[in-house]
Design a protein around this nucleic acid. Structure first.
Lengths: 148, 148
DNA sequence: TCTTCCGCTTACGTTAACGTCAATTTCGTT
DNA sequence: AACGAAATTGACGTTAACGTAAGCGGAAGA
């Protein structure tokens, strides 16, 4: 474990100044969003982020940071990294153009439908398991009654 | 695609006789449960099924078929194949013993908790997406209003 | 007999999202 | 000069549940 990130509560005081900064290192973002360096580099390989370089060192702008937020948001709601990249690329192509907004809106709605489907599947599974539990409980009660 | 399985409605008539049978081929079960041969063999490799052999050919008993049903049920409610195997093995060790029933019951309840957690996550995601949709719609309406 | 169907085994491939490891390098302190 | 922390690249490993391909055998039907 060479790359580890702990929380340093002692650093929390400087947040006002820190968050007003224009540039972030890879470690900054990793700490702030609780992800690993590997993840940030991976996202870069995938074309989700494109930080500048100071020689070799990555430098993330506020814009990069905003994109990262979008990526993590997208993941949270169940999009794959590929889907997220497509949407962000599309959006960045010409900022906030109507067609792109409509495309994204459509994707969001489809995802909502997919999520609702998943939800129903899970509800059914919970129902099945609950019924099974009831049956097993019944068997157990019957046994203890016989044994008693 | 060398191994394909279609539904043969013309075979449906013989179901009374067929289902009363004692032995099944791998193709029989594949058709009945709509899974591939590969899957059946995979489950065997994993120790979930142990059909007998007529020379090289697998022969599944009604007991094997019942186990397969359990496996598919377990999958449906979100257990991994490893978890399913553990439970089935445990259950087969001494059939229907109280302790084993209690262990399974415990697992089921844990799984219900896990599923309910997933359900909440999905609901939150749906909420997020719905709100995002509303925002995007608002932007679009505003634009069309300005353009009009 | 030829073809087709059903079955067999072995073994490598797939997908997603990173983890882990190795070998260096650069930076800020002390 | 030495040290540790933080950074770099590259490449292989992981997990789950199969898919896919290659190559083979035996039985049934035209």
């Amino acid at each position: 474990m060479k790359e580890r990130f702990k929380h340093f509560p002692s650093d929390a005081e400087a947040s006002d100044i820190e968050r007003a900064r224009k540039l972030f290192t890879i470690g900054d973002l990793a700490r702030e969003f609780d992800i690993t360096l590997r993840t940030l580099r991976f996202y870069e390989d995938k074309g989700l982020l494109t930080p500048k370089r100071d020689g070799n060192t990555r430098l993330y702008s506020r814009r990069d940071r905003a994109r990262l937020k979008l990526v993590l948001m997208g993941k949270r709601v169940g999009f794959s990294l590929d889907e997220i990249r497509e949407m962000i690329d599309l959006y960045d192509l010409k900022d906030g153009q109507e067609t792109q907004l409509r495309v994204s809106l459509e994707k969001f709605r489809e995802q909502i439908v997919a999520l609702e489907r998943q939800k129903r599947d899970i509800e059914e599974a919970i129902g099945d398991l609950t019924r099974t539990c009831d049956v097993v409980e019944g068997i157990l009660k019957q046994r203890t009654a016989e044994a008693g």
